[in-house]
Design a protein around this nucleic acid. Structure first.
Lengths: 136, 136
DNA sequence: ACAAAATGATACTATCATGGTATCATATGT
DNA sequence: ACATATGATACCATGATAGTATCATTTTGT
């Protein structure tokens, strides 16, 4: 799959934060977005580590968007939760296929991967919010 | 991943059959392509069921390509071993996201999926063999 | 006829990525 | 101090894919 569940949840959480634009607890995110609590927490922690959200502990604490929505790219999120966009190389590893460079199939799959990357890389949180997004 | 191992193995086997153009046993395919014997057998059986190869039992028996290489599409193989090319719909199922039709993200992922499908659908065994294929 | 060599069918096991859970430590506001 | 929040981290569950094993059936050569 191109977008894993964790990435998807992250998008929803970030969208919620962007629209609310106030410090929001993981509990509220869980409640509103119907995402399992401990999983939500894990996701928010990842987002925090990567500087996408700021967090504050203690009562009344929670998360705030730490970057402008137009600066949050989908490829960035995919990278955090799934690693680099990869539709090709992973399977044709060393021993199995040493001829990747000259392989026709590999070239074609590379084309697809590149296209996928370019599309995803142009999508930002802003677009997702404004672009008729109806996500969840 | 776009192309699973089983699909990849199938491509190699079909390529071998096409180039040899003689009845070939699973044992020989296994030996030449370094694919695990029971797995190879399973793959060949699938190819047989779907009419891509003809088989003959008994000593000296084996497999023969049953369709012209230019009529064997990569999308066909993907379908057999992985099901329909799907980069999108699977994850956004019913309960999780009921708004697929109007969802911006879903639209974009659909674009990617369509492009991937079109590229794969234009690849035939013939192209793979002739197109500087160096696969394995 | 018979044995050996091949595939057909099918059920099983193993591995790994992903999704999801649980626990304890740490910080903060009242 | 205590309740409430996040930080860190280790663990478990599930499912898809890869791979194995077994037995039945067909065909060929002697």
């Amino acid at each position: 799959m191109l977008i894993a569940r964790s990435t998807d949840y992250a998008v929803r959480a970030l969208k919620y934060l962007a629209e609310k634009n106030q410090e929001t607890s993981a509990a509220e995110l869980t409640r509103e977005l119907k995402i399992p609590w401990p999983f939500m927490r894990k996701i928010m922690q990842s987002l925090g580590k990567h500087g996408l959200v700021a967090s504050r502990k203690g009562p009344g604490g929670g998360f705030l968007l730490a970057k402008a929505p137009e600066k949050i790219k989908l490829t960035g999120l995919v990278n955090i939760f799934q690693g680099p966009v990869c539709l090709n190389e992973c399977i044709f590893k060393k021993k199995i296929c040493p001829n990747r460079k000259t392989c026709y199939l590999s070239k074609k799959l590379g084309e697809i991967e590149e296209h996928a990357f370019l599309v995803l890389d142009r999508i930002t949180l802003k677009e997702i919010i404004e672009g008729g997004h109806n996500h969840g």
